[in-house]
Simulated scan of single mutants.
Amino acid sequence: MTYGVAGDAVPSDGLTVGAAASLVGVTVRTLHHWDSTGLVCPSERTAGGYRLYSASDIARIHRVLIYRELGLPLDGIGELLDAQTIDTTEPLRQQRDQLVERIAHLQGMVKAVDRLIEAKNAGLLLSAEEQVAIFGTDWQPSWVAEARERWRDTDQWAQYAERSAARTPDDWRQVAAANSALDDDLAAAKRAGVIAGSPEGNALAERHRASIGEYFECTHSMHVCLGRKYVADPGFTAHFDALEPGLAHWLRDLVNANAVAQGINPDSATWS
């Protein structure tokens, strides 16, 4: 917003509402409203009854605009302008404190947006050393870059980046610990002979799907697609079978059976 300065020349016979509005940079409708509420009333009228704003009226308008820029409500502005004896610095101090709080809030939002941008570009806001310390010596930091190049334009990568931006190293330690416990429980369940499609098997499949949900929303259909990769991708197969021989195929069967219970045909499931 731009408006004239207090020293702008005002004719001795005053300014019409249109001329006053043009001078200070507000609308005629605004001045009409301020007149009706008593905030700024023109001191004079023409013979035909039209409003005329004097130099003091224009000065009052400027003070209203300054207070409004500071965020003070119009009714509070009117009280400040009309009070002759009260100390007007206290409301201004209060407004300054509110502005400082707002600035701090906005600065926090800027930092959050910066982290989100960094997470979307980097994938994981952890150094290579932190990644290995948290996820184990088998972890390869290059995997994050490979995933970014492959999935960076997908909704899932956007979700992953948003969640990554909000996580601290301690948060990631909790995620890693939960995943490690899940791997142990899956291996133990296979050794115990848990059957795909059983209540216990479906519960484990849902728990595994929830673990994927720590990174992005994983539907049952998407879960089936991941299960296929567990047996088709040598890296995934090696990871699971190192925990328990045959675990990759067993987990795939567990996921498929759970999907069937949810009305999904594993043979035609897609990434959706």
Rank of each mutant, 00 (worst) to 15 (best):
A161H: 02
V40N: 13
I212P: 11
A83E: 04
A158K: 02
R148M: 00
H220D: 15
L226D: 00
Q156S: 11
V255F: 06
A205F: 13
Q98I: 09
P266G: 05
L204Q: 07
S198F: 07
H62L: 14
P141L: 00
E217W: 06
W271V: 08
A166G: 06
N179E: 13
L186M: 12
H208F: 10
P42A: 12
D170N: 09
W151Y: 14
G246V: 11
H208N: 13
E214C: 08
N265I: 10
L80P: 11
A189P: 04
K229C: 04
L126E: 02
V175L: 06
N265R: 15
L125E: 10
V113W: 08
L52M: 15
T154K: 01
E217K: 01
A166V: 07
V17N: 08
A147S: 15
L182G: 05
T237H: 02
G18F: 05
I58P: 04
E101L: 11
A147K: 01
E200I: 07
R29S: 11
L251T: 01
Y67W: 15
S198Y: 08
R207F: 12
R252D: 08
D253W: 02
A9Q: 06
R29T: 06
G18N: 05
R51N: 14
R228V: 06
G48L: 04
S36C: 05
Y230N: 01
E206K: 11
G14W: 09
P141D: 00
L23V: 06
H223K: 05
R102S: 15
W250L: 03
C41L: 09
L15Q: 03
A203N: 02
Y230I: 01
T85G: 10
N256T: 06
L116N: 10
A238E: 00
W34L: 08
L81H: 14
T30S: 08
L126Y: 01
Q140C: 02
A210G: 12
Q159R: 02
A242G: 15
A119E: 01
D253Q: 10
G193R: 10
D253P: 07
V113G: 14
R102P: 05
L251N: 03
S221P: 05
D8C: 06
L106W: 09
T37D: 11
L254G: 11
Y3E: 04
W151M: 09
V260S: 04
G25T: 02
Y3S: 04
E214T: 03
M222E: 09
E200H: 13
D114F: 00
T270N: 09
A119T: 08
R167W: 04
A20I: 06
V28Y: 06
R96P: 07
T270Y: 04
S198R: 09
R148E: 00
A181S: 12
A133S: 13
D155G: 14
I117C: 09
H220M: 11
F236N: 03
A261Y: 05
S268C: 07
D57R: 00
G213K: 03
Q159N: 02
R150G: 03
D82Y: 12
G227N: 10
S221W: 09
Q159G: 03
A145P: 00
E217H: 13
